[in-house]
């Protein structure tokens, strides 16, 4: 079990932030026949847990990278509380990547403190905060290890701690459990998403799994390929905390069937 933690600044304790994607279009190449994503409009409120699902190549990761200021829009824009996200600002939106991308040459605690140090935080303070965040994800005793000494699941927890250490308004997770085995993926996913939800952390999570997309979401954003667009938004009104029993309900089956059918035609057209 992960330790309890004081609820972060949530929509109850602070002015609600909004991440707005407005008419977003991204082209990787100006001469490309079609953009990677186009006409994307999306509003995410602080405290929401949004999952994004769609076939390969539909632009899920492109959308996420743009939301975090890692990609410049060809047209349209990304706005956080009305201010354009022109470049990465991890205190506003911090990433968790699929491949963890922990620096193997830094100890776990230094990896977690990295963003804080980049933001100009005093080294001692940054390390204290990093240790606290490692405690939050249940890895306090691994602080002085190197990432290579940890399992894949532990490394992903460290990556989550690294992002949370900056107290971001939005957490952007790009298939964070995709590199893990099925059992770890399920248990770690359930554990972390529950704790993030309890803490009122706003999350945008990319996934390929229909079950994950439904189980973890307050809202599911479905994308289609060719070019990448949002085809549907589905609200999942199941109350939190969610138990695995939710996955055996008729409501869950209905949602999975709907997602399956929404993704299938796009996949078929892609295959053509």
């Amino acid at each position: 079990m992960l330790p309890n933690r004081t609820v972060r600044e949530t929509k109850e304790t602070k002015m609600i932030s909004h991440l707005n994607v407005e008419n977003l279009e991204i082209r990787y190449n100006v001469n490309a026949a079609e953009p990677a994503i186009t006409g994307v409009n999306l509003e995410i409120k602080q405290g929401e847990f949004v999952t994004v699902i769609g076939p390969s190549g539909c632009g899920k990761s492109t959308l996420l990278h743009a939301m975090g200021g890692m990609l410049s829009p060809s047209s349209g824009g990304i706005y956080l509380d009305g201010i354009e996200m022109a470049r990465p600002d991890p205190r506003q939106a911090a990433f968790v990547f699929q491949d963890y991308s922990l620096f193997p040459w830094k100890k776990v605690v230094d990896n977690v403190a990295m963003g804080l140090r980049f933001a100009g935080e005093d080294k001692k303070v940054a390390l204290e905060k990093a240790r606290a965040e490692l405690g939050f994800v249940g890895l306090a005793d691994k602080a002085d290890k190197y990432p290579g000494e940890l399992s894949g699941g532990m490394q992903q927890r460290v990556a989550v701690a690294r992002a949370l250490a900056l107290k971001p308004k939005f957490l952007l997770m790009d298939e964070p459990f995709g590199a893990l085995d099925e059992q770890t993926r399920r248990s770690l996913g359930q554990e972390l998403t529950q704790i993030l939800h309890d803490a009122g952390q706003s999350v945008v999570l990319i996934t390929h799994s229909l079950e994950e997309a439904i189980f973890w979401a307050d809202r599911i954003v479905v994308m289609k390929a060719g070019p990448g667009e949002i085809s549907k938004e589905i609200v999942v009104d199941e109350p939190w905390p969610r138990s695995l029993e939710f996955m055996t309900t008729a409501r869950f089956d209905d949602l999975r069937a709907e997602l399956f059918h929404r993704i299938q035609p796009t996949t078929a057209s892609e295959a053509k």
Binding site: M70, F97, F103
Partner: peptide, 16 residues
């Protein structure tokens, strides 16, 4: 390249 991507995503400058 992923390490440069992470440094950039976490607000790192060229010097960082």
């Amino acid at each position: 390249p992923r390490f440069f991507r992470v440094a950039s995503a976490f607000g790192g400058s060229k010097w960082h």
